[in-house]
């Protein structure tokens, strides 16, 4: 659809991501959600609009997704992140069959066929097994989250982390540090534990087709390696794994508008203003 603009906004527990789409990505911004920035979803949107060089009013349809999607006053529609992730992944990997998404506060597995969500599983009951867990431990170890992956690849004897609870795992890590175990061996052990959990969760879906790993944790090369070894096959990663939800949101918005136009019905568009979102 020439000349039309679609926006997808994915308000995650840690990151807010925006895509502006019009025959290709015109704007793409990732900014933090959490605590001090919680009201700033509109700012992330403004940055993306600036990249696309259009005013907000020029956007034809806005779809919000993610944990904070309900409270976005400037969205035309909310769509669950499961559908958005699936759609976004298919855009980048048309042969995808299974998605493993590990974000800041949950982990999910999605199975796709014929462009649709066929099945999904979710773990959001506890921080263990999520990006938050890695953040907590990175802080304890005094390591930047971005360095966790590369460091873990240097491990020679990855340790076994026996606790599945974030708090206890933190204590375990502290005691391993005091025993003089190298940091990289500890991190590799953590990745192994989280990848094992994600693998067991996704196995409930009977993994088929190409496996795509998304979410912030997919940026961590150590996690990618650990997950691949559990799966016994390579996983596909987007150049920017954080963006699939927002991408899917924009594309689903586009499809809604197209469908409405085909059937000759006008799509409902709200009076909307680019104002602060209430995330909590």
């Amino acid at each position: 659809m020439k000349g039309k603009y679609f926006a997808g906004i994915d308000i995650g527990s840690t990151m807010t991501k925006v895509i502006i789409y019009s025959e290709g990505i015109r704007g793409q911004v990732i900014g933090p959600t959490g605590p001090e920035h919680r009201h700033l979803a509109n700012i992330v949107m403004e940055d993306a609009l600036a990249q696309a060089r259009i005013p907000f009013e020029a956007v034809d349809y806005v779809v919000a997704t993610g944990y904070g999607r309900i409270n976005v006053p400037f969205a035309d529609k909310q769509i669950t992140e499961i559908s958005c992730h699936a759609r976004g992944v298919l855009h980048f990997f048309p042969n995808a069959g299974t998605v493993i998404d590990i974000g800041g506060q949950d982990a999910k597995g999605i199975k796709i066929a014929n462009n649709r969500v066929v099945d999904f599983v979710m773990n959001d009951k506890c921080a263990a097994g999520t990006g938050r867990f890695l953040e907590v431990i990175a802080e304890t170890l005094g390591v930047n989250i971005k360095d966790m992956g590369p460091l873990s690849l240097k491990a020679r004897n990855k340790v076994k982390i026996s606790s599945i609870c974030t708090i206890f795992a933190e204590q375990e890590v502290v005691s391993q540090l005091s025993e003089g175990i190298p940091v990289e061996d500890i991190i590799a052990g953590l990745h192994e534990a989280i990848a094992g959990r994600a693998f067991r969760m996704a196995s409930k879906l009977k993994i088929e087709g190409d496996v795509v790993f998304t979410g912030g944790v997919a940026k961590n090369t150590g996690m990618v390696k650990a997950l691949e070894s559990h799966l016994g096959r390579p996983v596909y990663i987007c150049r920017e794994p954080l963006i699939t939800g927002a991408m899917g949101a924009a594309l689903l918005g586009k499809e809604l508008v197209e469908k409405a136009m085909e059937s000759g019905k006008a799509i409902k568009i709200k009076e909307r203003k680019l104002t602060t979102a209430r995330v909590f």
């Binding site: 769509i79 669950t80 499961i82 559908s83 066929a113 014929n114 649709r116 969500v117 066929v118 099945d119 999904f120 979710m122 959001d124 009951k125």
Partner: peptide
Amino acid sequence: FDPDLVLKNAEAFEESMDYHRG
């Protein structure tokens, strides 16, 4: 029990039910 989570997932489950109906 987390009813909000179930409601959130309900939307995606509808997609799955539609697919299986087909």
